[in-house]
Design a binder for these strands. Structure first.
Lengths: 359, 359
DNA sequence: CTGAAAGCGCTAACAC
DNA sequence: GTGTTAGCGCTTTCAG
């Protein structure tokens, strides 16, 4: 039977049900139409499940069968071209895929985008301005619905010019420019929460080891600490605020100073610092949480959950930042009155804090 | 002058240089052509810098100016539609964006893809089979050049059926199916390297704390250990191989048993285990590296680099896996004779190993 | 209920 | 050197 009619130029009486070819030329709408003996319009209608057009069950079935038999897949490029808007959301990141936990921003953005029928197009710019411009250009050319511009740590940023050609939302960063939508973690609330964990367990003399390097986190986390103390009527004691480089070494190095403060609890700027402090405290034969209660910030899983004892801390809501970024872009979020939307930093209580034994 | 001729239906004498509209309808090739007073073909030619067609400098300039003035961006969807192949590479991951360091696979894939003019389309499936099918379908519809199918830890996997409709490469996982291209870390070489670090420093009695859970890593890392010992003429002593759950608690819990083995060095299945072991050893008043040399595996930055002392370990080459995956997909890599391509796991020496003092 | 036909923005022959 | 034209695969009036 099979005569050599596979000449694609002569769609003469080509209603021959071709077997699914192994990854050859993709099957097109037209081929489905021919196979089903209907017009392309009809196929389009059943593919898109348009309620408006009433297609007879008979026809619908024929089309469905043809689609299945041929293994048809719509060509999203063509759809986009005609509809004018793509189902892409771009995510440009300075180092998000690089840094351990901030990858959660991608994750949150991807989940949320997906939920609304969008796919995520990502670009890691490694902070390279030129790469960034190219990445944004690429996204613009693919007619993305909008762009999420994110940074791996919370900071102020300049808005690249090309970004303005699209709808965009800043994620984990912000600009002083009016009108620029942004979502950032609520550092102040986080600082308050961290301090409250300690307060709640009866601690009154609480030290705060802040970072030495300037950042919104530095200010916000300190503000939260003061607010929490204030709410409890505890006067702010400046001498209880130390500063160290925000990593393990910094925390370790701050041990001596901390010990001079005669406190029962300490809130560290981040988990890495807390990790270093654990070492320092241990070397002094001090036990956590009995001799010193410790809380961190960031909830860096690998560290916080597995220190001995597991560290109570406050989460940096990366996943939520990504998700909220997408919602904001899509106009699904309540527009902020002013300034960036602040995302809650939830408390994660583990075992590094215990009720203070009466002295 | 400006009469109300913005009627887009009548491109009559519409050579009026429109000012760049703020994110209105994107400017099209045709508009540029009209503005420059040339045909669309000409514009296309200069946009794509075709050397073949010789365009007069005069014309070229007029076109360039029009492009700049109008802020024209090519519509990649249209380009793709006509050319037939898109510049997308899909990356479907089971949990890559979720897990701390495996995000590097995304990073490596993105960098390499970008280098060859491709953009990365990602999808995190969270191991959900249905989501995975949808994600692959989406990628297929966007006519991706190919798909990278990756897992967050090295393991065997089934090839989803829809994946076969596209060109694909397995990343950090493999299938027994012939023909399926895959790139995985070279666990055996890694295990050998880890052991060699210890050997090189004079250690002869070296314990290996392997994982309890079955995995290619478990077998490979053990094989590497045996090979390294063998190469040094050290007989394999089964009693020196312990097993524990591969996390901090497991490492901590293995301390007692380890100490009974009377070894001078230990190679841990992973860094998290090593981290737990650090705690256990410390509680016994033992110092690293003097009383016990330790090497880990994975090079989980947050842990390994910041333990006290910093941990010598072997890197899981996630970035390279992503990059090699893309190269393989694009046919830029030497095809493997058989089985998955094995990516080297480089040694990272830090301070947890020191030359063994003569007893 | 279904088909014909116009185009989405762009590229690539092929004219002139 | 540059313009004309025919699609790429699809959606969407508008007829019938």
């Amino acid at each position: 039977m099979d005569s050599q009619e596979n000449n694609s130029d002569t769609p003469a009486d080509a209603a021959v049900p071709l077997r699914q070819t192994q990854r050859a030329q993709p099957v097109t709408l037209r081929q489905v139409a021919e196979a089903a003996g209907v017009s392309t319009a009809t196929v389009s209608l059943v593919v898109n499940k348009k309620k408006a057009a009433r297609i007879s069950d008979e026809t619908r079935k024929r089309v469905r069968d043809a689609i299945r038999d041929l293994g048809y897949r719509p060509n999203a490029m063509a759809q986009t071209l005609v509809s004018g808007s793509s189902r892409f959301i771009g995510l440009v990141a300075d180092a998000i895929a690089t840094t351990p936990f901030a990858g959660q921003i991608i994750h949150g953005a991807q989940d949320e985008a997906w939920k609304h029928g969008y796919a995520l197009l990502i670009a890691n710019t490694e902070g390279n301005r030129e790469l960034e411009t190219d990445a944004i250009a690429m996204m613009l050319e693919y007619k993305v619905r909008g762009i999420l511009y994110s940074t791996w740590f919370h900071r102020a940023t300049e808005i690249p010019n090309s970004l303005r050609e699209s709808d965009f939302v800043l994620v984990n960063c912000f600009s002083t420019e009016p009108g620029a939508r942004a979502v950032v973690p609520d550092e102040t609330q986080g600082g308050r929460s961290a301090t409250e964990v300690l307060l709640k367990h009866g601690h009154r003399r609480i030290a705060f080891i802040n970072a030495t390097i300037p950042a919104p986190a530095k200010d916000g986390r300190l503000r939260g600490y003061r607010e929490a103390l204030e709410a409890e009527g505890i006067p702010f004691d400046e001498s209880l605020v130390l500063e160290a480089y925000p990593d393990q070494e910094g925390g370790y190095g701050a041990t001596e100073e901390l010990l001079k403060r005669n406190v029962t609890a300490v809130y560290c700027y981040n988990d890495r610092m807390a990790m270093g402090l654990y070492d320092g405290l241990r070397e002094h034969g001090l036990s956590i949480p009995d001799d010193m209660a410790v809380v961190g910030f960031d909830n860096q899983e690998v560290i916080a959950a597995h220190l001995r004892p597991p560290l109570s801390t406050v989460s940096l809501p990366h996943y939520e930042l990504g998700a909220a970024g997408v919602r904001t872009l899509l106009g699904l979020e309540e527009p902020q009155a002013s300034g960036p939307a602040k995302i809650n930093c939830p408390t994660v209580e583990r075992d590094s804090v215990r009720v203070l034994a009466p002295a």
